[in-house]
Design a protein around this nucleic acid. Structure first.
Lengths: 217, 217
DNA sequence: TTTAATAATGACCACCCGGTCATTATTTCT
DNA sequence: AGAAATAATGACCGGGTGGTCATTATTAAA
């Protein structure tokens, strides 16, 4: 009883190369098929282990998915922390542009994790799908709300703005841009192809100055 | 050989009440489980017909889904056309608010169709999922781009704006608002609960006047 | 009313699923 | 080297899948 008996206890004591092959096979299978349609049989086949072993490491398909998801979450958070720290001295709008580009960079670096995320978004066939997504969204809103509040303090944003509302709008647009980029990677037929910095700058700038011909008071 | 031999030919010659019960059962099953995880056995059970009959009306599960999807698409388009015609004399921002409210009304009226749509969005387990979604998005963008161009012509929007970019931003926000509303309906635990007109007005207004403290030239 | 055409049925098929566990292979300890 | 402990295996289980088709029930024609 020396260490906590987590569900991944046995798994974590495996050789690193074996862990990696199992994680790789799992990520690929979940990314391609979502949770329910992912096949444990194919995972063990691609990982080069027996089914009995997998169910020895993880008590169920659910717990295996949880483990994969935790890995993805850790990766995302480290990305967000990085961009927050690296853009501390930029103005609000430059920062927002950098956040968007960090998201794009993440998708480029971890396309299969992004795939799992985007599947999770609306599929609801995953063990804790709803809770996971709610969590991610509220974390994103909190993250962006901080930026907005800071922007107001620095007098870069109008003081009468509701930070939560602005954060919601930013998150909407951010998510959509990332979704488009994700589709560009996974759908070769995609004809959207607007993923260049000019486009992002244009969006940020439009958000900055607004649409109306009539300037506010 | 008098009429086109479509895959739904036999189905459309059925009594209306029978058609309705089959469609109802199918919509419910697809809404609750997505395409692949939907069970044909449960559909026929809930529709009160035999499995053989269903496969007589529709050659495959795929074609049954296609038929359901076409129904949903028709419903959405009629909604969009209605709001376009009814708001012809409003200014751009009032119109955008009405579009958002029309979307919310649609979800309230057809929650199960909305569920199928949101599942379709990222699940990619449906027969032509990718193409369907691409189509819907580009139709939405085209629809909104018209509004933006009209707004510029009427001198309600800055002339230097790129209509496609603005339409993209609007669609991002619209989609997200509808997604939140959808979650409020289907997830009783949802604590977002911002679906009131004040919130929508606030978003539209923020988009109108922009975020920056510095007014454009 | 008898016959011919059409519609509805559900047992059945081959296949795949997540999960189990007695058996076998490997490592560790004496 | 032998015994004990641990790890890995894959045949097997009950259950569900989309789809088929010989049989039965219903309707239309004679």
């Amino acid at each position: 009883m020396n260490s906590a008996n987590t569900s991944t206890n046995k798994f974590e004591q495996l050789a690193d190369s074996k862990q990696k092959s199992i994680i790789d096979a799992s990520v690929n299978e979940f990314a391609d098929n979502g949770f329910k349609n992912a096949s444990v049989n194919k995972i063990v086949e691609n990982a080069g282990i027996s089914k009995g072993s997998l169910f020895n490491y993880f008590k169920s398909k659910n717990l295996l998915f949880d483990h994969i998801y935790q890995i993805a979450l850790r990766e995302v958070k480290s990305y967000l922390a990085k961009v927050r720290d690296e853009s501390e001295n930029d103005d609000f709008f430059t920062r927002f542009g950098k956040i968007i580009n960090a998201g794009i960079a993440f998708i480029n670096k971890h396309p299969r994790l992004a795939r799992i995320y985007f599947r999770l978004l609306n599929s609801d066939d995953s063990p804790h799908g709803k809770e996971i997504i709610q969590n991610l969204h509220s974390e994103a809103i909190r993250y962006l709300t901080q930026f907005v509040e800071m922007g107001i303090e620095r007098n870069e944003l109008r003081s009468e703005l509701n930070p939560g509302t602005v954060a919601f709008m930013m998150e909407s647009i951010l998510n959509r841009i990332l979704q488009v980029h994700y589709l560009e990677i996974f759908d070769t037929k995609s004809n959207i192809s607007k993923n260049d910095n000019n486009w992002i700058d244009e969006i940020v700038n439009t958000l900055k100055t607004g649409l109306s011909t009539i300037p506010p008071k």
